[in-house]
């Protein structure tokens, strides 16, 4: 028995769920960004699996996964720079301290 599309989709669902839990429950903003990366990786597994199993004439899924990786890299660079700027301002990486847009 070969691993089928549903195996990969289940793996991606599990990884996505762990990422959601990390985003919702962590207090350190860098850990939240790491969990977002886990979710993006889960989405990429779906794209690559679909490229192999659903439409294997054209590997458009791999192109999409590549674009997701590009956007994720840009997101990490800007996100971490924002965190460093916030840390300089607040001397904290605790999400509960980042409330300066709240009134």
């Amino acid at each position: 028995m070969m691993p089928g599309l549903s195996h990969y989709l289940l793996l991606a669902a599990g990884l996505f769920g762990i990422g959601v839990y990390g985003v919702l429950s962590r207090r350190n903003v860098i850990a939240v960004l790491m969990s977002v990366e886990l979710m993006l990786n889960a989405v990429n597994i779906n794209f690559i699996a679909a490229a192999k199993f659903v439409n294997h004439e054209q590997i458009v899924g791999q192109v999409f996964a590549l674009f997701v990786i590009v956007v994720a890299a840009a997101e990490v660079a800007v996100g971490l720079a924002l965190i460093i700027a916030m840390y300089r301002h607040k001397k904290s990486v605790n999400l509960n301290d980042f409330n300066l847009l709240k009134w």
Partner: peptide, 9 residues
Amino acid sequence: GAIIALLLT
């Protein structure tokens, strides 16, 4: 958060 992640998964 745990409940939402569990339901979603």
